[in-house]
Design a protein around this nucleic acid. Sequence first.
DNA 1: AATCTATATGCAATTATGTGCATAGTGGTT
DNA 2: AACCACTATGCACATAATTGCATATAGATT
Lengths: 191, 191
Amino acid sequence: MHIIAYRFFGEIMALAEAILVCLTDRPMSGYDLAKTFDASIGFFWRASHQQVYRELARLRDKGLVESREIEQSGRPNRIIHTITGAGEDVVHLWSLKPCRMPSVKDELLVKLYALDNVDIPVLHEQLDIRLDQHRAKLAAYHRIKEKFYDGQNLTRAQKGKLIALTMGISNESQMVKTLGKAITMLGEIDE
Amino acid sequence: MHIIAYRFFGEIMALAEAILVCLTDRPMSGYDLAKTFDASIGFFWRASHQQVYRELARLRDKGLVESREIEQSGRPNRIIHTITGAGEDVVHLWSLKPCRMPSVKDELLVKLYALDNVDIPVLHEQLDIRLDQHRAKLAAYHRIKEKFYDGQNLTRAQKGKLIALTMGISNESQMVKTLGKAITMLGEIDE
DNA sequence: AATCTATATGCAATTATGTGCATAGTGGTT
DNA sequence: AACCACTATGCACATAATTGCATATAGATT
């Protein structure tokens, strides 16, 4: 019966679950959520503010979150969303389902693959830019780790976030190394 | 004028470019392309066979590929697609455009992030499954590298594919290591 | 005085992706 | 003899994501 209910809610929509997960921590407005997706959980699942607002409307329609408006003067009223019992059930059922492999889509690698049809100096620049982006991401991860997860007495919830963050750090530092190698290899071709 | 032409063709559609890139190598049928997306170029840009056929129809409409039918008996006729001059121009213009960062979407990391709302033994299994998937991918990359790119006299086109493949190998072996570490960290929480 | 940044919400239109289905013969396995 | 995998193409529908826009005010900077 649970499974039928889950089917009814639609099969594959991990954005919904990512939002619900954020709301298990504390009730939030769409704006708060959008900021969260620009930072912490966004490291593992990217979403724009439009996506967040649209998904919140759907979650409200399905009764997975409850929303109440907070009066404000000067700016639009805040709408605070709270996860419901049904929402928590959905999160739990989702946690039991197998994970899909993340879908790979990297233009930079396609350009390397297509080296013979590509402007090489420009590609070189693009690799440098990407290297900087990964370095920046790595630095941001490190800052967060030191700020929030460097203590000894971490809750289980914090430990989970730390594991995810640690994976992010490993992957980013690997990307930095690998891009350096790719730039070297590309340089050797130029000669 | 070139830029206007490019705008006209639609801004961001790297699937189109990935297909065109494949066709610079040799003319191919949709079936061949779909297989290529299951293997080589698909390591860097995933696409299903439906996506490939749909995109081929669009490329034909825009005059970026030319298609001719080959009679076959027993099974549907093969339709062989050849890249046009306009198609080659699009590839070259695309190579000059900055690359977007690949969008991160990994359910497994979201589940780690959401550790407190997740079934831990099931998550453990899911991590093991993912580990196997990355090991399999790594093995596949190695097989291809040894089979096609281990010689000394590589063309420039082959060298590009080798760089991309090398990055793939680095990333996958990193994922294998990191997942191992994550599984260990998760185990320590159980205690 | 004008511009920029942050707060706060959301629609409309387009593009991209995924799922299920339909067709149809050949050759190999159980 | 029945079933499955491979070859080969593609439609229809549904869901997801991106881009551009729209509104509105406070406070800080130039």
